[in-house]
């Protein structure tokens, strides 16, 4: 059991036993290496206009095939339902390893993403395949449990073999302005992850503005996130191009100011191949092609994979395909 750090945090005084969040800190985070971070305001109109331009690229033939393969290899194939069974997770894992059994040219996805309870099943079925096991932990999707409970949740998932952990931030505390509280929580959960990668979900649909999203991005990265992630997929507003751009720009600025590289995961509502390569273009043109790898970019999705497979079939056969030609999830 890991306890929250008692040393003074980089945000100033640390309160380890906060029962109810209270507005306190001025927002002035420092990076892991101690660099004071500048958080500039976001030009909302410019951001949305810029985000729109990424959807107008024409991607054809060999570029399209490369984009499909890249998108597949960046997927966190996800099932996060109350009705998930070991059987369903096993099937998901088989699909993750070999997305199209009739076409070995299609690469494996990056990871499967499941609830902590099903991590052992996922580990069994992906062992030795190179597919990672990601687990949402820490009272996903609301995060409304005590820190001790969330940390225990994370530790259990890591002990069961998850090598990537997706947590949510406490939106309530963040919106109340208690940045210290949120920062310290993330830091403590990062410790609990141990060797596992930490993805921090900002749940942008609940943050209210791009300025807030940028602030939360900086906060999460400073507190130790290996990835920052847009959303849980469980609320009305999921990932969108402007939100992803806002976070990508935060990652870019963070890297410029500190030299530390953080990844981006977009999730929720990404169902078509076209959407997937809109995001690839966004990453390439905002962060650079070095981010176009499963180590630094992920797409959290379930039905997206089938649409990508249909596109591969169309390229291979010259005929439009349909949902009857891919497996039912």
């Amino acid at each position: 059991m890991v306890t929250p750090p008692s040393r003074p945090g980089r945000l100033g005084e640390v309160k380890t036993e906060v029962a109810t969040p209270t507005a306190s800190a001025v927002f002035a985070p420092r990076s892991r290496s101690g660099v004071a971070l500048r958080v500039t305001p976001v030009d909302e109109v410019g951001l949305e206009a810029r985000a729109k331009t990424f959807t107008t690229r024409s991607i054809k033939t060999s570029s399209k095939r490369a984009a499909i393969d890249l998108a597949v290899s960046c997927i966190d194939l996800t099932t996060l339902e109350g009705m998930d069974t070991p059987g369903k997770v096993a099937a998901l894992c088989r699909k993750a390893v070999r997305p199209d059994p009739s076409n070995p040219a299609v690469p494996s996805v990056a990871a499967v993403c499941v609830y902590p309870q099903l991590v052992p099943v996922a580990v069994t079925h992906t062992n030795g395949t190179g597919v990672h096991v990601a687990s949402v932990a820490g009272a996903f999707p609301s995060g409304q449990s005590s820190l001790a409970v969330r940390i225990a949740d994370i530790e259990q998932a890591v002990a069961d073999g998850a090598d990537e952990i997706d947590i949510v931030i406490s939106r309530g505390a963040f919106l109340a302005g208690d940045y210290n509280y949120v920062f310290n929580e993330i830091e403590a959960q990062k410790v609990a992850c141990g060797p596992a990668h930490l993805k921090v979900i900002l749940e942008t649909g609940e943050l209210g503005s791009y300025d807030q999203i940028r602030k939360a991005s900086m906060l999460a990265m400073a507190a130790g996130a290996d990835f920052i992630k847009t959303s849980t997929g469980k609320v009305a507003h999921n990932s969108s191009m402007p939100v992803a751009l806002c976070m990508a720009e935060a990652i870019r600025d963070y890297a410029e100011q500190t030299g530390e590289i953080v990844g981006l995961k977009v999730a929720g509502g990404i169902r078509t191949a076209k959407q997937a390569w809109h995001y690839l273009v966004l990453i390439a043109e905002t962060l650079g092609t070095q981010w176009l790898t499963p180590d630094l970019f992920r797409i959290g999705a379930s039905s997206l994979l089938n649409d990508l497979l249909l596109q591969v079939q169309k390229l291979d056969t010259g005929r439009y395909s349909g949902p009857n030609y891919v497996s039912v999830d």
Partner: peptide
């Protein structure tokens, strides 16, 4: 031809 070839 696209309609006739469409697998769905």
């Amino acid at each position: 031809p696209w309609l006739l070839g469409h697998r769905d």
